[in-house]
Design a binder for these strands. Structure first.
Lengths: 338, 338
DNA sequence: CTGAAAGCGCTTACAG
DNA sequence: CTGAAAGCGCTTACAG
């Protein structure tokens, strides 16, 4: 089967390429119905599929939204991608996911992508803030439409759609305080310290503690899969806390395993975190731990669907209007206690 | 900041576009070092980024691999994507994930994508077999490089990289038989009946049962999220089984919830499945269930990393050699008992 | 060492 | 109603 293009269709149907293009793209021009049929017939006979590369080159628009997120196989970002892709498709846009794997080099490459014109707009949850600031500001100066999702980069003006991380953390910490806890440690993974989400949560936690006359107590750990974590050592060097505020549910299984190895009386600890978590089937003693924790878990669940839709709307608005929409929006979280 | 292209760089540097292209792409031609510097300087001064659309249009190659998979936020496909992207990048290829959401229309669109030249080759885990057969055979006749991953479509000749689903199911069923179980029901979601993976597992299960003089017993259910499932009714109409072979661990939480609602003595049932599973944090009674199941779970865990790498290798070989590699390969599974 | 020119497959004023 | 022609931004023979 030989390769077919518009030129061949035009020859075969005895019309000009102009007409072929118009008809195939459903432009509402007046064409003789017979001519129209002829063109369509030839196209389908040869199983013609347009070359989007060529069209995009000419039109300077690809009808595609790029989503830049750190890779996660479960949880917040994974759900977010699902909802973004699904909703963007409904709104007539293709999507392109650029995973960064927490790798500076890869995130940089992904961002350089933008000027290679493969996408009309970007939804960005940047991970390596330092690396990205430069590229993101280039994007701004080239007026590439850009919306931050979940997190933002200081100094880059773009709408941000996210939960209100500060308020959420404040409320979560208040809930722990209201249960009578005083010794509440905020546990955070620090591999990504400039992450605005994390910073916001720390700020909300600290404000809640201070306003209750308590001293904020932040414990940092490093994490590279179940192997390279120093959480155990960090926790071992101090007494077991009364309550724990873990900045993201993503690390909850790891935290539980660690607590277990340290021999903590898990039933006595209150846990608060953001976003639900999943326990792996081969997590030994998972059953007992679950039982012990019952009644001591507070979770702020982010509305990934809401965030996704608002972000896509904001980006499309920016792309189509050519103007930046407001300062972004906060999407409310949902609380779960169990 | 004005838009910069090769033409402008050429003018600015007082050379031809040819030279600019050569230098910027590191072609090893002999250029005066001064000229070379000049070109590079101008390019970086204007923050030049090449238009990959234009290059791809000319070269008829994008250096991109498309991955077509049904969307899953956790589990097998999610891990697979991670390993494919990561390894493909190591081998110098960009990737593009096309999620299908189990939607015929969307899968069709995604496949039509192929001839729009946005990718040089495809890794396909097709979900809607009927819809796709036509398009896939078009791809074959256009000699687009294609490798099936995990599952294949009958009648389309392309290498398939996957676990040996038949053998794996046979062995899994044997393990249950060896534990002394006779009443072993195979539970499967039937929304995707032509799925070759599922078919293979049923075949392996049936062979193991028959070779032990037992009657295969397959129970079908429909599933659309936790809401629209008829598993409860299907199970309720019969006595509790001695052992269950669930075709994929993905549905394990759903099965457990259902068993619990039916009041099964879960400790008495042996469970066998393929791929690990994750228990949601808000799964009520998860703890007790975990405890009851201990010692009764057998899982065949697929080697997603191995599958991903082999598949990418096979695809790249096909793309670069222009010739189809062999009939594909099986990647061994790993067994877990707990 | 270097450049002029054709062409990848589209779209769209512009001119009948 | 319809067509000839320019141009999107690259790459690559081909010719000095």
């Amino acid at each position: 089967m030989e390769k077919i293009d518009m030129k061949k269709i035009a020859q075969e149907a005895n019309v000009s390429m102009t007409l072929v293009s118009q008809v195939l793209n459903n432009r509402n021009i007046r064409v003789a119905e017979a001519t129209r049929r002829r063109i369509l017939d030839v196209a389908s006979r040869y199983q013609y599929v347009p070359n989007r590369l060529a069209a995009a080159l000419k039109l300077k628009r690809t009808n595609t939204i790029a989503i830049l997120v750190p890779f996660t196989s479960v949880g917040f970002f994974s759900e977010l991608i699902y909802h973004i892709e699904s909703y963007a498709l409904d709104r007539g846009y293709n999507t392109l996911v650029l995973n960064t794997f927490g790798d500076k080099k890869k995130e940089e490459n992904a961002l350089q992508f933008y000027r290679s014109q493969l996408a009309d707009g970007f939804l960005v949850a940047a991970q390596n803030v330092e690396t990205n600031r430069i590229i993101l500001s280039q994007m701004k100066s080239d007026s590439i439409p850009l919306v931050f999702i979940d997190r933002f980069v200081d100094g880059i003006e773009a709408p941000t759609v996210s939960s209100d991380h500060v308020e959420t953390a404040y409320e979560l910490c208040r809930k722990l305080i209201d249960k009578g806890k005083k010794d509440i440690v905020f546990i955070r993974r620090v591999d990504d310290p400039e992450n605005s989400t994390l910073r916001g949560r720390v700020a909300g936690y600290a404000r809640a503690m201070e306003s209750a006359g308590l001293a904020p107590d932040v414990l940092d750990f490093h994490f590279e899969g179940d192997e390279g974590s120093d959480l155990l050592e960090r926790l071992a060097s101090r007494p077991a806390p009364e309550a724990v505020f873990l900045h993201s549910g993503f690390y909850m299984p790891h935290l539980l395993k660690t607590c277990e190895r340290l021999g903590y009386g898990i039933g006595a600890i209150d846990f608060g975190t953001v976003d639900g978590f999943l326990i792996p089937f081969d997590f030994s003693r998972a059953g007992e731990l679950f039982e012990m924790m019952r009644g001591n878990i507070t979770v702020a669940v982010q509305d990934t669907r809401g965030i996704a839709r608002r972000a896509v709307d904001a980006l499309i608005e920016t792309m189509e209007a050519g103007s930046s929409v407001g300062p972004g929006s906060f999407i409310p979280v949902e609380w779960k206690e169990l």
